[in-house]
Design a protein around this nucleic acid. Structure first.
Lengths: 305, 305
DNA sequence: ACAACTTACGGGGGCCGTAACAATT
DNA sequence: AATTGTTACGGCCCCCGTAAGTTGT
């Protein structure tokens, strides 16, 4: 029996308001946000006004809708808070409901390597009654799916300096274990002047044209930041989720792309090792803090060490 | 204008309910929690019932009140969420209100070293109009004060392995920079058999009696976990915030304590270097993510590197 | 004029307090 | 019997939708 408990003097912030705030910012419009949230514009307007009054600052400029300085600060907090709120619900659901014997694995396209597929097959063999689902989607969606507990396990690929972890967009609730690390190649049409080189430096190719295929090759933003350049022009954006389509574009000369070294390539595309900067292709397995037995087995089985 | 925005399918959890849940767990009683929260017992009961219905699991056993497995999971999420909710409000308040030219520094007792005091004096000189307040309190309170944004800067002391950061109770919203690192001594009465040794190993003293002075010496729980022992018996708990009272107890033979090497000692107490395990005394400065100019100056000026 | 955000106002649901009830010691 | 948690009920407030108003293009 303790008597002087106080969690916070300053009161809490209503997460419903935070949610509409985040949505309004993302949509750039009150009315569009209202549609997504299944509210009227009026309600959204009132909610934002109420949030601003509660916080005591103007959060958004209207027409055009954009965050003020204060709004930007709030946004930095709002998204993780909403994520964690969902994670809390999912986590306790897993702890309370008897093991529902279902495991959903979210994965980005390139992370689903033969080794991973093999592990999933082995998991099926170990747990014949387990309802195992694999969901392929974009990287960000994999992270949020795991962070919110929508999926228990995630697999994600990306580029990083050797032995460095991928820097995720999340913080705290998700833990990552390395699954694989490989060299990178620049994919070129066989007719490309550099196609005969045995290795390439990214610096030699900053003025080339690139294909920005966020889901199926190394994202250009990541390449730029890791290479410390703001070159790597791009005019072609590939939203597909299969490598063959991208490789067809490469073959046709629409641009270059960086892919893992073991990617199978068609005859008219060649992969040249990327020697500098020293970057590797990494695959990581993500999971929440309390893994079920099948999830833990998968993590153990796939961990690189 | 984007059209397919969705933050989470599963809905949010009401933080007011989380707050009463946390309070009930901490108090171990619905009725005591109700007093602290300024509610009736009835309201608390209804809130917990409502939370349990919302989540879909029993969170607490009644009589005695304790968390179920599901409740424990929820608790792990609830506290950081509430902290962050408060942090969000404080952070935007700082960003929006014109610089209120007030800086509150929370600090644990031992962290307020001459060097720190000097830096604070220099800060006063640099910003004559700044309303600088220093608040000395227990370690946990310093952390939560910074995490919630109640104070912009915190100073905290503790023991750790050399070059390791202190492991804080928080995650994410607070960043720490090292301020100082010193050797540790075991303080003994001069009459103690070990008083003439030039250095000591903690292993030699696991069976001695210790004074548990959480705020003004190395906390025994920390020593135990870092030393990997469950010895270090204690019968004297010192809640004071000044070292001299503790040292009087040591002199009187009530027990031993571990303190930083540069602590001034009275004539009847001697400090013997702690050689094993290799531990150091560390002071860190904590701050939120967006520091005001005075806070940033303080952090720069005190950082150890 | 129209598109988009704000304000006014009324209805309904949720939340808390009072009070009666149940259960555990 | 006393203490503690639960259930019943009623009032109040808050929140959303409708609809009219305002502002910027």
């Amino acid at each position: 029996m303790i008597s002087d408990i106080s969690i916070s003097n300053t009161d809490l912030v209503d997460p419903n308001l935070l949610k509409t705030f985040v949505t309004v910012v993302r949509c750039g419009s009150f009315s569009v946000a209202a549609q997504n949230l299944q509210y009227t514009q009026s309600a959204v307007s009132q909610q934002i006004a109420s949030l601003e009054e509660d916080i005591g600052a103007t959060l958004l400029t209207r027409r055009p809708v954009a965050t003020t300085e204060a709004g930007a600060r709030l946004l930095e907090h709002a998204e993780p808070i909403l994520l964690r709120l969902a994670a809390a619900r999912a986590d306790v659901a897993r702890a309370s409901g008897q093991p529902p014997e279902a495991l959903t694995v979210a994965t980005s396209a390139l992370a689903l390597t033969p080794r991973v597929a093999g592990a999933l097959r082995a998991l099926r063999a170990r747990h014949p009654r387990l309802d195992l689902t694999v969901q392929v989607s974009a990287r960000e969606e994999v992270v949020t799916a795991v962070a919110t507990g929508h999926c228990e396990v995630g697999l994600i690929d990306g580029i990083a300096a050797p032995n460095d972890p991928l820097r995720l967009w999340d913080e705290g609730t998700v833990t990552a274990v390395g699954v694989a690390e490989r060299d990178l190649v620049v994919t070129l049409p066989t007719t490309h002047p550099m196609a005969s080189r045995s290795s390439l430096r990214l610096a030699d190719l900053v003025d080339a044209w690139w294909i920005d295929a966020a889901d199926v090759a190394a994202p250009l933003v990541a390449l730029r930041s890791l290479a410390g350049t703001d070159g790597l022009r791009s005019a072609v954006f590939y939203d597909g989720i299969d490598a063959s389509g991208l490789l067809a574009l490469v073959a046709a000369g629409h641009g270059l792309a960086v892919m893992p070294a073991d990617q199978r390539l068609p005859a008219d595309v060649i992969g040249v090792r990327l020697a500098s900067p020293r970057l590797v292709y990494r695959i990581e397995l993500l999971h929440g803090r309390h893994a079920s037995e099948p999830a833990a087995w998968l993590a153990d089985n796939l961990s690189a060490s």
